[in-house]
Simulated scan of single mutants.
Amino acid sequence: MAHTHHAASGRPALTLRLPVLGLPVAGRLEAVGWLEADEAARFLAAAAADPRPPRLRTGALLGVMLTEGVRVAEICGADIADPGHDRGWRTLTVTRKGGKRQVLPLAPPIVHA
């Protein structure tokens, strides 16, 4: 069974038919949200502007989440002390929803953070 979201904001992706994965929240299905490119850039810039020492780690974690679509629980469960290599890329292995493990390539700015 699928549910059709109405395109109220001019975003064509909202017209896609999405599978219903469980019970609706408060009697209705919630639309999936995302950040536009400029919003993501401002989000990362705010993390980089943090004066506290963990800003590099925070920026790297947010970068992985934004570029790879990793959930908070997935990134928190990753062993960042043991990154891998694949065809010249640094990689990070995460356990996805449902227990599936996936190797993710890391962009150079994230690796250097």
Rank of each mutant, 00 (worst) to 15 (best):
R101W: 01
A26Y: 08
T4V: 08
A45P: 03
R17L: 13
V103D: 04
A40H: 02
V20L: 11
A60M: 09
A60Q: 08
R42S: 13
L92H: 06
P83L: 11
L106R: 07
L21K: 04
R90G: 03
Q102K: 13
L14M: 09
A49P: 05
L61M: 15
V64P: 07
E36P: 01
D38H: 07
L104V: 10
A60C: 11
T95A: 01
F43A: 09
P109T: 04
A107K: 07
V64N: 03
G22I: 08
G63Q: 02
D50F: 10
G59T: 14
R90K: 06
L61W: 03
L14E: 15
V94T: 10
A7I: 06
L56Q: 12
L61K: 10
A60D: 06
K97P: 04
P108D: 08
L61R: 10
L104N: 09
E68A: 14
R90E: 11
L16W: 08
F43K: 08
G77A: 14
Q102G: 00
R71S: 04
R28D: 06
S9I: 02
R42H: 06
T95F: 00
G84H: 13
G63I: 00
S9L: 05
A7K: 05
L16M: 07
A7M: 10
T15A: 14
A73T: 10
A47R: 12
H6K: 11
A113M: 12
A8H: 11
A107H: 13
W89T: 11
A113G: 13
D38I: 00
P12W: 07
A45N: 08
L14W: 07
E36I: 00
A107T: 01
A48E: 12
R87Q: 14
R96E: 15
T15C: 05
D86M: 01
I75P: 01
P54W: 09
G99L: 00
A37W: 00
G69E: 08
R90F: 04
A48M: 08
A26G: 03
R96A: 07
L29H: 15
A2P: 01
P12C: 03
A73R: 12
V111H: 04
L104P: 05
P105N: 07
A41Y: 00
M65H: 02
V20P: 02
R87M: 11
T67R: 13
P108R: 09
C76L: 06
D82R: 14
I80K: 04
H85E: 15
V25D: 10
L56S: 09
V25Y: 07
L21H: 02
A49I: 05
E36L: 10
H112W: 09
L106E: 12
D86V: 06
H85G: 06
G84K: 12
L35R: 02
L62F: 14
V20E: 14
E68S: 15
R101A: 09
L44A: 13
A46C: 09
D86F: 02
A45R: 09
R71D: 12
A46P: 02
R52F: 05
W34Y: 09
G10P: 06
P24T: 04
G10A: 14
I80E: 13
L29T: 02
A37M: 03
A107C: 01
E74F: 08
T93C: 11
R52N: 12
P108Y: 03
A78R: 13
W89V: 04
V64Q: 03
L14Y: 15
G69W: 06
R52Y: 02
R17I: 01
A81T: 15
P83T: 07
P24Q: 09
R71A: 15
V103Q: 14
G69L: 08
P53E: 12
P12G: 07
